[in-house]
Amino acid sequence: MSQVCLLDSDRLSALLRDALPWSDNISSLMVSATNGSILAYAYRDTTPSIKDMRTQSTTMTAAYTVASEDILVFEAQNTGAISVITPIADHILLAVTGPEPKKPKSVQNGHLEDAEHASVGTEESHEEEGQTDEDEGHHQIRTDLEVVSQELARVLREELSKLKWPEEI
């Protein structure tokens, strides 16, 4: 019985922490069961409350289950952050999540509070440039999430394949 290791969450969390620096566009990594149970996680910044993590896990696993895709690219409605959700074993998912999008400039008295928009006649071109930069940034984040998801899923699948399951005892 001492050889049985169903899931070493510390080892999985260590693998996630090691993978977090692979891209600056990754804000969190989470391994969860398809019932929403959190198995391992790593966050770039402050770790949220357990309630927030459970909400994140449940939301993403529910979205994955409903979509029934091999790999799901999911944008959270509450934060706007993009996640790539990938199965790594039966009933176990990996979620690679990017940063929340930057808040739009605030509007006061009908004008944007931004010095670069103060010039007359240039506001429209700055908005178009800003939109293009935002689209390119969004595309780069998604690409980074997908690349990290694929590579980390491969690493985690190898790790999980080494574990002994109850039916093998």
Rank of each mutant, 00 (worst) to 15 (best):
L93G: 00
V31N: 05
Q56D: 14
L20Y: 01
Y64D: 08
L145R: 00
E136L: 13
A89M: 01
S68H: 14
S37D: 15
I71G: 03
D10I: 08
L94Q: 01
D52T: 01
T132Y: 12
L7F: 14
D10K: 09
T122P: 06
V84L: 06
M60F: 05
T86D: 06
M1E: 14
E127R: 13
I71K: 10
R44G: 07
L20T: 04
D10G: 11
S27H: 12
L39E: 09
E69Q: 14
G137Y: 10
D45V: 03
T122F: 13
S106P: 14
Q56T: 11
Y64M: 13
R54H: 14
S161K: 11
T97E: 08
V120W: 10
L112M: 06
R142G: 03
E158W: 04
W165C: 13
Q108P: 01
L160H: 01
Q131M: 11
D8Y: 07
L16E: 10
P104V: 01
V96Y: 03
A81R: 05
H139G: 11
L72K: 00
S37I: 12
K164E: 14
W22S: 15
I26G: 02
S9F: 05
A95P: 03
N78T: 12
D45A: 09
A14Y: 06
R44V: 03
T122V: 08
R157T: 05
V96D: 02
R142Y: 02
